[in-house]
C-alpha cells in the first residue's frame, strides 16, 4: 500500500483524459435532473430489488440498502459545499445532524426542506421526519396486496447512511405512510421517517450536554 505505484501501470483514463480528480465538485449547481428520468430509473431499481424477495419487509430492506451508500457520500459532499472549506465543520450533536438532514440534504435531493421534524414523546431516542409528498412516491401506486410498502424506504436508507457516517449509529430508519391518519385529504402520500438512535449515541449526547458545550 505504501509503495508508489508506477505511472501508467495499467491505469486507464477515460477518453476525454479526465479522471474523477479533474472534475469539479461544485459543478452540479443549477443542474437538476429530469423528474421523468429519475422516475424511470427508480422504477427499475424497485423491480431489481423485487427479484427473489420474500415479503414487503425484505423489499424495503433492499431499497434501504440501495440508499445507504448514497447517504454516506452525500454527507461529506454536502458538508463541504455548505460552508467555506476553510471553516469545515461537522455535526456533533443529534439536533444539528437532523437539521442538516431536514434542510441541507432535503434541499439537495428534492429542492425543498422537509416538512416537519419531531421528537417522539414516548421514546427519547426516536425522531420523526415528515415529508408531505415524497418525490420518490409520486409515480408509484401500490397494488392491494402490497399496501404496506412505502418505497420511500430508499430515502430512509439515505438518512441512515448520513446518520451512521456521522457517527450517530441508528437501529434503523424506516419509512411509513401516514396519509390515512390526520389530514388525509390534504396529503394522501404523507410519509414519516422514523429515526431511532442507538442507546450509546444518546448516552454520549447526554454527556456532551452536561459538559456545557
Amino acid at each position: 500500500m505504501s509503495g508508489t505505484p508506477s505511472q501508467g501501470s495499467g491505469l486507464r483514463y477515460p477518453s476525454n483524459k479526465k479522471t474523477i480528480y479533474d472534475r469539479n465538485l461544485n459543478r452540479s449547481k443549477n443542474a437538476e435532473l429530469s423528474r421523468a428520468a429519475f422516475a424511470y430509473l427508480f422504477i427499475e431499481m424497485i423491480s431489481y430489488a423485487q427479484r427473489r424477495v420474500r415479503d414487503v419487509n425484505d423489499l424495503e430492506k433492499r431499497l434501504n440498502n440501495q440508499g445507504y451508500p448514497l447517504g454516506l457520500r452525500l454527507l461529506d459532499l454536502l458538508l463541504s459545499r455548505s460552508s467555506n472549506p476553510l471553516a469545515s465543520i461537522r455535526p456533533t450533536r443529534i439536533l444539528p445532524l437532523l437539521q442538516f438532514i431536514a434542510q441541507t440534504l432535503w434541499r439537495h435531493l428534492f429542492g425543498r426542506p422537509a416538512d416537519a421534524l419531531e421528537r417522539s414523546e414516548s421514546d427519547p431516542g426516536q425522531y420523526m421526519l415528515y415529508d408531505n409528498e415524497p418525490l420518490v412516491n409520486q409515480y408509484i401506486s401500490l397494488p392491494r396486496e402490497m399496501s404496506q410498502l412505502n418505497c420511500a424506504a430508499y430515502v430512509a436508507g439515505i438518512i441512515e447512511g448520513v446518520c451512521d457516517g456521522a457517527g450517530f449509529a441508528t437501529e434503523g430508519v424506516t419509512a411509513h405512510s401516514v396519509g390515512d391518519q390526520d389530514g388525509a385529504k390534504m396529503w394522501p402520500g404523507k410519509t414519516v421517517f422514523l429515526i431511532k438512535f442507538k442507546p450509546d449515541v444518546l448516552e454520549r449526547e447526554e454527556i456532551l450536554g452536561r459538559g456545557g458545550g
Binding site: I89, R90, T92, P96, G213
Partner: peptide
C-alpha cells in the same frame, strides 16, 4: 472529536 463542540452543536473538522 466530540469535545470541541460549540454551542451550535458542530465542531471543526480540523
Amino acid at each position: 472529536q466530540w469535545g470541541l463542540s460549540t454551542s451550535a452543536g458542530s465542531a471543526p473538522m480540523y
